[in-house]
Computed example of a mutant assay.
Amino acid sequence: MNPKLPVFLSLSGSSFNQGLMWMGLSMASFIAMSVGSRELAATLSIRQVLFFRALVGLFVILAVGRSVFPEIPAMRRVPLHLLRNIVHFTAQYFWTVGVVLLPLASVFALEFTMPMWVTLFAWILLGERISRARLLATVGGFIGVLVIVRPGVGMIDPAAGLVLIAAAGYGLSLIMVKRLTRQCSPGAIVVWMILIQLPLGLIAAMTDWRPVQAGDMPWMMLAGIGALSAHFCQAQALKRLEASVVIPIDFLRVPMAAVVGYYAYGEAIDLWVFLGGGIILLSNLQAVLAERHGRLTGALPAEPLVEKADRR
């Protein structure tokens, strides 16, 4: 790749177009998962929603993912798998609460604070130095959150706080995934996720079980398949596109969610959400571009987070 060319020009046409396709599928899958989860929560408890999402994921893995099963008996890094999935499961619970109680666009905009939490946890847990670009991105992300929730204008919806906690949980989970990838394939990490989160979901669901109707089945399929498809398609896009391209494209989830929320649920389109989300987006984007420039000029290591994670 020629470092003198802009990001978009340095990508082959085929790879770039494929990446755009995978990102489009990823964004559609995330929104489908959100809609399926919200519809399920109308008749079932949120704990049941998480259980059935994992149950559908199990059937999908059994159908198309059996090639990674030989890795499972090796039992590599099981304690870390367990800790990662407890954190991720808790984050999913808070995120689903947000999906049910907040406009969809607000949920996705607040979720974009995850890189801010990744930076914080990398500093705390991995001892990684925070670059000036990442520090500015963290400050920008915090300002974006303030614009979205607007404290002082009215009572802040507690659900917004839960989504921020979920974003922090996803950030911590990502740090642990980076450590797991040293010894485990992505497919094995997904299988462990299903195997651990399915019983967690069942135990949680049994504390608030409600009758399941035949009409719930399509929404279960939409939420469960959407969840697996979203992460798979995103990973495929990241193979073909740089993060500096993926981040602004992925932000299109916010207006897409706003349109779906407007037509499906009559949610008002809040310009403050777009303004705050835009601040978060630009903050993350400038950090990625600054780090990319630093790697190309030799001022930064190629993957500091992964390297530090692997040494621990």
Rank of each mutant, 00 (worst) to 15 (best):
G215E: 13
P3G: 12
L146W: 01
L241E: 07
V118D: 08
L281Q: 09
L228T: 04
E307G: 08
L55D: 04
V149E: 05
A302S: 05
R132W: 15
L120K: 04
F274H: 08
E307Y: 11
R77T: 00
I249Q: 10
D216H: 14
I247N: 10
M21A: 13
N85L: 04
L135M: 15
E267T: 06
R134N: 15
F8P: 03
V259Q: 09
V245D: 05
G187W: 15
E39C: 02
T297R: 09
L44P: 04
L126V: 09
T43H: 12
L252Y: 01
R47S: 06
F8Q: 12
Q286G: 09
L135R: 13
F94V: 02
A122L: 08
S283M: 13
E303P: 01
R179N: 00
W219F: 13
A235W: 13
L241I: 07
F59K: 14
Q48C: 07
W209D: 07
A230D: 02
I130L: 12
W219R: 05
G65A: 06
G171R: 06
A54H: 03
P70E: 02
A243H: 07
H231D: 07
V273E: 02
Y93E: 04
E128Q: 14
L164T: 00
M23A: 12
L162P: 02
W22I: 08
W192T: 08
E39G: 02
N85S: 11
R295V: 11
E128A: 12
P79T: 07
A268I: 08
V118S: 07
M176T: 06
R311D: 06
G140S: 09
D157C: 06
L62E: 11
L146K: 01
T113S: 14
R66W: 12
R134I: 10
T119W: 10
P103G: 04
S10M: 08
G36D: 00
A109F: 08
W95D: 02
S244D: 06
Y265N: 06
V100K: 15
A133Q: 13
L62G: 09
R240G: 06
M193G: 10
A54D: 00
W219V: 04
C184F: 08
L174H: 10
P248K: 14
Y263F: 14
V212C: 14
L195Q: 03
G57V: 06
V87L: 13
S185A: 14
E111Y: 14
I130A: 11
G276M: 08
C233F: 15
Q183L: 12
G144S: 09
T297A: 03
I203E: 00
Q234S: 11
A28C: 08
A290Y: 04
F59G: 06
